[in-house]
Design a protein around this nucleic acid. Structure first.
Lengths: 198, 198
DNA sequence: GTCTATAATAAGATAGAC
DNA sequence: GTCTATCTTATTATAGAC
């Protein structure tokens, strides 16, 4: 992924760090060049435009996330698959908080040059969750409230993904003193009916 | 809440609509003026700066959300409180998708002029969920996995909030053909242990 | 209170030397 | 491949007329 000339890698890393706090639109090419320790001309030698630079960044990051999730799930099924996926996603968020922030802020924008690329990757990541949810037979043991309609596994996947993403960022950004296991347990508890009637 | 001269209201509405798709940084004061149907001078007559305009916008929107959640919960306790809060949040997201998108993209930024204001309001909204979760006695019936440590109710609140926010936007942005009840049921199922072992 | 016109600066992108 | 210097346009903000 991105056959590193070294410079390319430095540019991508700098862009990610800056965009995590300022957002993509709020990050200037001058900022990126300075942080990467190269001249602005080198940015345009390696990437044809600002849009293309950030498309490459998101493609690399979210693509790696989807692969990582698939690997984490392995051949697990049922609740074990969910546990593995939640843990793996949380770890990815912790290992790359900058990308997580960027995803949170870009995932629902529909006006970007890289919209299609991001949509496909987002869908790929969600699909890993959706498949695990379907195989876990969600709905078979639904509570007294209405059972989820068929075909809502993507919605449920978004629900689980959103739970991990928001909790993970809440942890890293606002409550960094907590332990990873504490956070993972809290998320799994919220997803396992800890406050639902039995 | 913003004693409307009419113009002020039009400016805030225009700013919200534009920022929902382009983001705040990507929204220019010229854009806002044009969409609101006023001259740019009027923007600066009513708001001292772009930052102050968006701070007012977020303060109004997120503040109203917190109030709304509190009202929706009323005196309910346990799982009924959670159900009411999930439903109310989902309805607010559907009624004001633009604000929901904006929240998703701004909530974890730590470099904004309005950071403190937004943090306080975010905390207020999460607190409504956290209180309901604490009273529902989360953890008392935790699964075989580790029980959540004490004091993690804010993390669990973030988890529930994130689940609703992400599913809600997934629904509105990418799967608008679904019904509100279908989405609500899917979220509640994912939170009630539909795929967890019993 | 609202408008038009304009000042001041910031930002994406390119040219051409090394 | 990388750098410096520069072009061009976009953007925040203000001044002053109505």
């Amino acid at each position: 992924m991105v056959r590193s000339s070294g410079t390319k890698r430095a540019i991508l890393d700098a862009a990610l760090e800056l965009a995590a706090t300022r957002g993509i639109t709020g990050t200037t090419m001058d900022d990126v060049a300075e942080r990467a320790g190269v001249a602005k001309g080198s940015l345009y030698y390696n990437f044809s435009s600002k849009d293309q630079l950030f498309e490459a960044l998101l493609e690399e990051g979210v693509g790696a996330l989807a692969e990582n999730l698939r690997a984490a799930r392995g051949t697990l099924v049922g609740w074990e698959a969910i546990e593995a996926l939640v843990g793996a996603l949380l770890d990815r968020i912790a290992a790359n908080a900058a990308l997580a922030k960027l995803m949170a802020s870009e995932i629902f924008r529909t006006d970007r040059a890289w919209q299609k690329t991001l949509f496909a990757l987002r869908h790929e990541a969600l699909a890993v969750f959706a498949e695990a949810i379907e195989e876990a037979g969600a709905g078979a043991v639904a509570p007294d409230a209405a059972a989820p309609a068929s075909g809502t596994s993507t919605i449920m996947a978004a629900s689980v993904f959103g739970a991990v993403l928001m909790s993970g960022l809440e942890w890293l950004v606002f409550e960094p003193e907590r332990s990873r296991d504490e956070v993972a347990a809290a998320i799994l508890a919220s997803l396992s009916g800890a406050f639902a009637p039995r």
